[in-house]
Structure formats: structure tokens, C-alpha cells
């Protein structure tokens, strides 16, 4: 018989077990525990209910709960996996994990597909891309002529919409991303590889007890 090591992590009532979450993600158990401290802090900033609502998410990101930002809204909607208008701890960790350098390209590709499929139709439609483009231009106070936007959309769909049905399906998106890998650049946050070192300020009680049996 060899010497077995078991990991005893804290239990968080009402939230998923950190060991289970670590086993499903690229985060270690101690990193998941550190993320719990962060989650707790964000989730009690407006309503102390153990869940992150959109205002709390915006407040954490921008220090302003009313700031409108389309990209942040979309990220919140995707983190809100259960579509309840709030993010629970398990979904917070699993969603952050997609941005981890060690997460698979498949996960990142799928996340970006859902990011642009704003109406959840299973396709990225021209109207959705146009809406996002215009909203981001407005937020950036940049101006592009309508004709220029249409040309950009024409060329994009000519390249990505291989079957020419006016919308981009999942397979078409995967192929398009393979040809344009820069589109996944926003999906990898290098600092997630070592969050407890990069952001020591949010780590309080995250030590893990290693018990030899």
C-alpha cells in the first residue's frame, strides 16, 4: 500500500466544494479558496445574498455600479449560466476558468461563439454583430460611416459564413477562429495562471490542509 494524501478543503454552505471545482478547472484548491474570498467580497457589495448580481459585477469592474458597457454585460450574461440574473460561486469559478491560459481552445472558442450569439439562436447573425459593433463604437466615441460598417460586415460574413445562409454556425465559427487565432486573444488572461501571487491582496484565509493518511 502506498501512502495516500487527501486534501481537506473548507466547505462553503450553499456553494460547491472547492476540491470538486479545482478538479473541473485549471485552478488549484487553494486558488479556488482564494477565489471564494474574492467572490464573497464582490457578492456582498450591494446585496449581501452570497450571489453576484449585475450591479455588483459592474461595481467590481468599474468602481461604478451604473456604468454601461456592452462587453461587460455580455460577460455577465455568460457567467450567469443558470440565467437567474445572478452568478453563483461555481459558475464564477468555471467561467473565470475559460480565461485561464490552460483552458482548452475549444472552451474559449465556444465562449466567444456565445458571446456574439446575443439572442441565443445558435447562430451569430449579422444583425447581432452590427449591434455590438455600433454599441462599442458609441461607447468609444468613435465614428464610422454606415457604408464602412456595412462593408466590414459584408467582408466578414463573406469569409466566415461559408454556406452563405447569412449567419455563422458553430462549425463555421470554429473554422473562422482557426484561420483568425487573434480572435481568441481576449480569451486568455495570463495572470490567472498564478492569481494568488499576482493578486495577493484578495487572499485571506486560503490555506489548504494536507493530511497524510
Amino acid at each position: 500500500m502506498g501512502c495516500l494524501h487527501s486534501t481537506a478543503a473548507r466547505e462553503y454552505p450553499g456553494h460547491e466544494n472547492p476540491v470538486k471545482l479545482a478538479s473541473e478547472t485549471a485552478f488549484s484548491v487553494s486558488e479556488v479558496e482564494a477565489l471564494y474570498e474574492l467572490f464573497k467580497s464582490i457578492s456582498c457589495s450591494v446585496v449581501d445574498d452570497g450571489l453576484i448580481n449585475k450591479e455588483e459585477f459592474q461595481l467590481a469592474l468599474f468602481k461604478n455600479r451604473k456604468k454601461e458597457n456592452l462587453f461587460a454585460n455580455r460577460i455577465f450574461d455568460l457567467f450567469d449560466v443558470k440565467r437567474k440574473g445572478v452568478i453563483d460561486f461555481g459558475d464564477f469559478v468555471r467561467s473565470l476558468n475559460v480565461f485561464h491560459p490552460n483552458a482548452s481552445l475549444e472552451e474559449k472558442t465556444d465562449f466567444t461563439f456565445r458571446l456574439y450569439d446575443m439572442d441565443c439562436t445558435g447562430y451569430i447573425e449579422r444583425q447581432e454583430v452590427k449591434q455590438m459593433l455600433i454599441a462599442l463604437l458609441c461607447e468609444s466615441e468613435m465614428k464610422l460611416a454606415d457604408d464602412t460598417i456595412e462593408v466590414i460586415l459584408d467582408q466578414t460574413f463573406e469569409d466566415a459564413d461559408v454556406d452563405g445562409d447569412g449567419k455563422i454556425g458553430k462549425t463555421e465559427w470554429s473554422d473562422f477562429v482557426i484561420k483568425n487565432p487573434s480572435l481568441l486573444k481576449i480569451m486568455t488572461l495570463p495572470y490567472l495562471r498564478d492569481i494568488t501571487t499576482t493578486f495577493p491582496s484578495f487572499v485571506f484565509n486560503s490555506e489548504v490542509d494536507e493530511i497524510a493518511t
Binding site: 467580497s41 462599442l136 473562422f176 483568425n180 493578486f199
Partner: peptide, 25 residues
């Protein structure tokens, strides 16, 4: 060079940074 709509969106959203979450304490 052809600049596709998604590259455009990615570049414009580059100011969005989840790292702010970690500095929220």
C-alpha cells in the same frame, strides 16, 4: 489588410479587463 468585424470588436473591447475584479477589495 482586411479587418474583420470580430477583430474590430476584440480590439475595441481590449479596454475591458477582468483583472479589475481581483483588485476590487
Amino acid at each position: 489588410k482586411f479587418f474583420n468585424a470580430f477583430e474590430f470588436i476584440s480590439s475595441m473591447s481590449s479596454g475591458f479587463d477582468l483583472s479589475s475584479l481581483f483588485e476590487s477589495k
